[in-house]
Amino acid sequence: MSAFQTSRFRTVVFDLDGTLADTAPDLTASLNHTLGKLGRPAVPAEDVRHMVGHGVRALLRNGLTATGEVSEELIDEGFPIFFSYYEAHIADHTRPFPGVEEALAALEADGVKIAVCTNKLEALTFDLLAALGWKDRFAAVVGGDTLPVRKPDPAPLFEAIARAGGEGPAAFVGDSITDTDTAKAANLPCVALSFGFSDRPPSELGADRLIDHWDELIPALASL
């Protein structure tokens, strides 16, 4: 551990979509490909940004709802279409948000364990992390199907912390009400990003700190 600590936290867990990386372009392309195969019109990219965060089935449900009637049977039909296309195009246009690498490096230099807790399917999560050059970057990765429950249930967040080593105080960083609700359920402090995939104004997320750029993360954590 470095002599200078950037915060009191020894484990920091991150959401993935809309937090670590802007995955909206590839999610939009995959959703619209699926909708097209199901005979539906495309959904605008800006709308998709507010549909993300609850997993593939929820994204499909939102896309179908926006374009007509929806049923579990139709979601079941669309799921493999989406999965296959997204798996093949998972990082065509997805990129880490500016400042992510520097913030993660600063935490690691301070001896902080970093982990991922996302509602994205585990297989797709590992595919994306590898595509972004982050295959071995995180001490732990928990996806939406790693456990029987997913966020906002706090169990996946606790699991990510435990798998990372469970050292000292922990904090969660996300971009949506799902993330802030997860942190609250776990009784952990939360930093939210104002530029992610929230379905409501960021000021209404109820985060302990709200930041507008990744270069504000370390000061925000230090202030908690």
Rank of each mutant, 00 (worst) to 15 (best):
168 G>F: 12
190 C>N: 07
40 R>N: 11
36 G>Q: 14
111 G>Q: 12
207 A>S: 12
154 P>N: 04
32 N>W: 05
178 T>Q: 00
83 F>M: 13
78 G>L: 06
177 I>V: 14
171 A>H: 01
171 A>R: 04
212 D>Q: 14
82 F>I: 12
26 D>N: 13
168 G>C: 01
106 A>T: 15
156 P>D: 08
44 P>G: 07
109 A>L: 14
201 P>S: 02
74 L>Y: 10
27 L>N: 02
55 G>P: 12
58 A>S: 12
43 V>F: 10
13 V>R: 02
140 A>C: 13
59 L>G: 00
153 D>A: 09
183 A>T: 01
103 A>E: 05
97 F>V: 09
28 T>H: 10
72 E>Q: 13
85 Y>L: 11
10 R>E: 10
102 E>S: 12
28 T>M: 12
19 T>C: 07
44 P>F: 07
127 D>G: 09
203 S>E: 15
164 A>F: 13
15 D>V: 04
52 V>T: 00
53 G>F: 06
121 L>I: 14
11 T>S: 02
179 D>F: 00
148 P>E: 10
48 V>G: 05
115 A>E: 04
139 A>D: 15
223 S>Y: 09
160 A>G: 01
145 D>V: 09
204 E>L: 12
192 A>M: 15
103 A>R: 03
222 A>C: 13
95 R>H: 15
207 A>I: 05
200 R>M: 12
122 E>A: 06
137 R>Q: 06
44 P>S: 10
113 K>V: 11
203 S>I: 15
